[in-house]
Computed example of a mutant assay.
Amino acid sequence: MIVRYWRGWTTPANADAYFTVLTEQVIPGIAARAIPGVEGPVVLRRDLGDEVEFATVMTFADEDGVAAFGGAEGGAVVPAAAREVLSRFDEYSAHYEVAAGTAAVTRPNV
Rank of each mutant, 00 (worst) to 15 (best):
V3F: 10
A32I: 07
L22E: 08
I27N: 06
I2P: 07
R83K: 14
N109G: 12
T11S: 10
P108E: 15
T59E: 03
T11N: 01
G37N: 02
A72Y: 07
T56P: 04
E84P: 10
A99M: 10
T10Q: 12
V43C: 05
I35S: 06
R107V: 15
R83E: 15
V38S: 05
I27Y: 01
A82S: 01
G8T: 02
A100D: 15
L86C: 04
F19C: 11
Y92W: 07
R46G: 03
G71R: 08
E51A: 08
D62K: 09
A76N: 02
V26I: 06
T106V: 11
D47L: 10
N109W: 14
P28H: 05
T10G: 06
R45I: 10
R107W: 12
T11V: 05
F89L: 06
A72H: 09
V77E: 03
E51V: 00
E63M: 13
A76E: 00
E24P: 08
E53R: 05
A94Y: 05
V105P: 02
N109M: 13
A61R: 15
V66A: 01
P41I: 06
V52L: 07
E51I: 00
V52D: 03
W6D: 05
L44R: 11
G74Q: 00
G40H: 03
V105S: 14
L22Q: 11
R33G: 04
M58K: 03
A15P: 02
P36R: 00
G75Y: 09
M58C: 11
G70F: 01
P108D: 14
E39L: 08
E84A: 15
E73D: 12
I27K: 00
E53C: 11
T23M: 13
A34Y: 08
H95K: 04
T11M: 09
T59L: 03
N14L: 09
D64Q: 11
A61W: 07
E63T: 12
G29E: 02
E53S: 12
P79M: 08
